[in-house]
């Protein structure tokens, strides 16, 4: 299971990479593997404001539809329209080209509610896969 260092993780298997006051968000390797082939992504609109752990996007795989929650609060600056046309990017490169949205972070201290790579690794391994 690929869990890069330097990112923050949620229990719902989203990641956020923090760069100044901008957070890039996606789903983890565990999540993409568990979902299977991603067939559709509904992205949020840029400019809207999301809250930590609230709905950010919807991802559909062959078997199911699932919500993606935002790891941080803030305003959506940019979305990755590439995954709309090529949803498989989320399976192939979930930490790179398969990112979902960039968020202008409102409160850096929210990362206290998230896990670092080591903690997430322990958490995900505890789930049995």
């Amino acid at each position: 299971m690929n869990i890069p260092n330097g990112l923050f993780y949620t229990k719902e298997h989203e990641w956020v990479k923090i760069d100044g006051d901008i957070g890039t968000v996606g789903i983890t390797d565990y999540a993409q593997h568990a979902l299977g082939d991603v067939t559709f992504v509904e992205l949020p609109k840029t400019g809207i404001v999301v809250k930590q752990f609230q709905g950010l996007a919807t991802i559909e795989s062959v078997k199911a539809a699932s919500d993606i929650f935002s790891p941080v609060s803030g305003k959506i600056l940019e979305v990755n329209s590439k995954v709309e046309n090529t949803p498989a990017l989320i399976n192939q490169t979930c930490y790179q080209d398969g990112w979902i949205a960039k968020i202008k972070i409102k409160d850096r201290s929210e990362t206290n509610n998230l896990m670092d790579a080591a903690a997430y690794k322990k958490f995900a391994e505890g789930l049995g896969e």
């Binding site: 568990a34 992205l43 078997k63 539809a65 699932s66 919500d67």
Partner: peptide, 9 residues
């Protein structure tokens, strides 16, 4: 975004 119908996946 619209809420997906089925949560546990």
């Amino acid at each position: 975004p619209q809420k997906a119908a089925h949560r546990p996946i």
